[in-house]
Design a protein around this nucleic acid. Structure first.
Lengths: 202, 202
DNA sequence: GACGATCCGGAACCTTGTTCCGTATCGTCT
DNA sequence: AGACGATACGGAACAAGGTTCCGGATCGTC
């Protein structure tokens, strides 16, 4: 172990133009995602960044890499919010509700993200996987807490719940008659099911 | 009334080869839809039918036309089942449950159909519209009945419910961990909400 | 200043959708 | 039967987007 580099030992540091381009691509991607959605043509992002196609593919081999680079910290923040809410909220159910709200907000706020997660196109499969792998454990924790508190019917799988919520958020743009929040609200209400609130009940 | 043609008076009947080709296309499309999903390349269907690209576009200008031609009668049957169930089932809620079951079965049975309905690709927009226009009224009728019977919380929009159910069915293939029926079940349970069953309850 | 490692740009190729038109076929009329 | 106009056919051609690849420019170091 010579311990000379940040990691193993890339004999040379990254070239400065490479760093610059990565930065430009990140900014361009963020802008294009907002303008045209996360499924915008790669060429459009390359053009916005003033960079060739080869460059974008070298820095971000898959679309997922780009999306994660742009929105990754928000996903992480969402993941981190789970335990925090559980600690701070009045009850596990309140925590779950708040967390789901936050997740839904994130999805429907990012142009085309929900649709992308729902689609099974090549290049979105990995994105799908990333989201689920990152957030399902958090959701599971919240769910277990609500179950233990008797606020939720047991036996609901966190993975399925996350997929369900994500799916419900699909297509909210391009359809003003459909508000995902209504259906997510219904879904969550179904989660409470017959496990009536242990407290008040007229 | 001369009563010579089937309709108004296309001065000539359709050519026999045209009829033959339409038939072939229908059969080919059905086969390809099963094998490769409703989003299979047009060329694949043309090849399967042994016709040129121009021919398929002439007979079925949009993908929707083809899908409706293949699955239309099943959609109609589903639409027709609504009133019948309402008349036959023990309660409006039973009717609604049975009808939703039937709809979900239909969606997850047809390779890629749910995904297609969820996507907002050009050429699937119309399919989406067709399904909703045909089935939302039926769902609305069932929903009103359950509401009147006090088996369902009022204020839920049939259109949103149908979209929600459809969305929940997306991506069930290519993901063995996700069973749409579970989430649809939850959604429907949320529909019943706090409107406790007016009858028996252990 | 030179030289090798790195990185860049975009031409080129693939897949799929869609249009268009020269040509073949059909049905009818003589 | 033969001819002729209406129909229908086939597939070339064009567009859009994804992905690969490599000659050449640039960077960092010696």
């Amino acid at each position: 172990m010579t311990g000379q580099g940040p990691a193993a030992s890339p004999r040379r540091a990254r070239r400065s133009d490479a760093q610059r381009n990565e930065q430009r691509l990140l900014e361009a991607a963020a802008a294009v995602f907002v303008a045209s959605g996360v499924d915008a043509p790669i060429r459009e992002i390359a053009a916005e960044a003033g960079v060739g196609l080869g460059t974008i593919y070298r820095h971000f081999p898959t679309r997922t890499d780009l999306v994660v680079a742009v929105y990754g910290h928000q996903v992480e923040a969402c993941a981190a919010a789970g335990p925090r809410l559980l600690a701070e909220a009045a009850s596990p159910l309140d925590a779950l509700l708040a967390w789901v709200d936050r997740f839904v907000d994130f999805l429907i706020t990012k142009h085309g993200l929900a649709d992308a997660l729902g689609s099974d196109d090549t290049g979105f499969r990995q994105l799908h996987a990333y989201f689920l792998e990152r957030l399902v454990p958090v959701c599971a924790e919240l769910l277990e807490a609500t179950e233990r508190a008797g606020q939720t019917t047991p036996g609901v799988d966190a993975y399925e719940l996350m997929r369900g919520i994500g799916n419900l958020c699909i297509g909210h743009e391009s359809d003003t008659r459909y508000d995902p929040r209504h259906m997510v609200g219904l879904l969550i209400r179904g989660l409470r099911g017959t496990a009536a609130a242990p407290t008040a009940n007229p």
